[in-house]
Design a protein around this nucleic acid. Structure first.
Lengths: 235, 235
DNA sequence: TCAAAAGTGTTTGTATTACACCCATGC
DNA sequence: GCATGGGTGTAATACAAACACTTTTGA
């Protein structure tokens, strides 16, 4: 998935790369890229290979397992067990994709093959949840960005307007933003030039580990960064 | 998994049911219950069947997919792809388990077969995280319980002391607790008899959906339960 | 000088922890 | 009555949403 401003008009949005099926079953419908697992690779290696080979996506900033889809009738014929992944591509790279593939807004999916719509929605929901309590945002944004550009990414992915002001503060408090020192030129309408930031880390980390039930705070003195002990990502 | 007070002394703790391997490879080591997926069932049906057949666990209060483990060398011989699950059994049922199986504290695992230790730890971490932002607690506790009993369940699962006072309040505020009206007899040392509670729901729900980035609050008036819209569980 | 966009200060609301204190029971 | 838990009242803290206000640019 990816945050994209489509060339042909339309709103910028969170989009997913789909592949138009040339063969039956479900000719003409759109499906997720993927393929068979080879005996000598694990599932993550496999999905990275498939994306690189078939759709030339090599710059995945984040990949994570979603779930196994195994309904005996999810595809016609002999049962196929699929391990679904969420993969993110930053908004500034525009991979060359084959003729028969295209990016589609996740909120206006075309007719999809098999259970792929359910899979895409599951991925979208996972991304939404993680934007809240992890730093996955880094995987959608370019290396350097302005806060308002980042705001647009978050807004598109979450599906509601996010305030740049508060986004700034939350990410700063969590120590995720690094000011690069430079600024972006202001637009033709004028306006104060925006400062450029980058993310402090380029791998996913849980930044808001405990919603509740924090373990007892053992900070006797010194208000110095009493972050709760690092907790494993939820998947 | 399950919260258990072991009969043979020892601390009550979060325990996992393991199975002692009778055959090579890894004879004598402990492994997770499981087995082959049949062509006509999905993975969840399969794991429920395996548990029912082999170890007579029929009273699973919660089951969820964990992840796929697919390293080509995770088991000797031809590669086996495993879909791991987290399954919870309430503390008041004590299923008949076969001779060669036993409950083991997740924090003092015996020598396990294959990658099963990693799987168990992954399950533990998932449970810990979800205790915080969902109502999974219901799956560990009996139908009726006192707050301090529940506190012990949470403490064992989380690995640190939880305050009964605050547990009460958090769960109450979220509308998860229902007072049954009756009380438990006080212990032989006296003490005020504890009120009995039960959980309001018996399926898992996300109770603390947004850590941050809540969508704009559109409550113009009436302070009436402005819970954020229900958000999909993170797996 | 004015409009536009970025960024800061400050208030408000609310969830959660921490802790002191009151309550009900057995002996 | 007194020890032993159970339960409530009430601060202190922290985080984030909302919004007014200041800053910096282009025309």
């Amino acid at each position: 998935m990816r945050y994209t401003t489509p060339t042909a008009g339309g709103q910028p949005s969170l989009q997913v790369l789909l592949w138009r099926r040339a063969l039956d079953p479900h000719v003409g419908r759109w499906s997720l890229p993927g393929g068979r697992l080879r005996p000598d690779e694990d599932v993550e290696t496999s999905i990275r290979r498939q994306l690189a080979e078939k759709v030339d996506i090599k710059q995945l900033t984040h990949v994570e397992q979603l779930a196994v889809f195994s309904d005996p009738h999810r595809v016609p014929g002999p049962r196929v067990v699929a391990t679904a992944f969420l993969g993110l591509v930053p908004s500034d790279v525009d991979p060359e994709v084959p003729e028969d593939t295209a990016w589609h807004p996740v909120d206006e999916l075309p007719r999809t093959a098999f259970d792929h719509e359910a899979i895409v929605l599951r991925a979208r929901d996972r991304l939404r949840a993680k934007l809240s309590y992890t730093n996955v945002g880094f995987a959608l944004a370019p290396r350097e960005f302005t806060i308002s550009a980042l705001r647009d990414h978050y807004s598109a992915a979450l599906g509601y307007r996010v305030s740049a002001t508060n986004l700034q503060r939350v990410l700063s408090r969590r120590g995720l933003l690094v000011a690069t020192g430079s600024t972006a030129p202001s637009g033709r309408a004028g306006g104060r030039p925006a400062a450029l930031y980058s993310f402090a880390h380029d791998d996913m980390q849980v930044t808001d580990p405990f919603a509740v039930f924090k373990p007892p705070a053992r900070t006797t003195g010194a208000r110095a960064r009493t972050r709760a002990p690092r907790r494993d990502a939820v998947t």
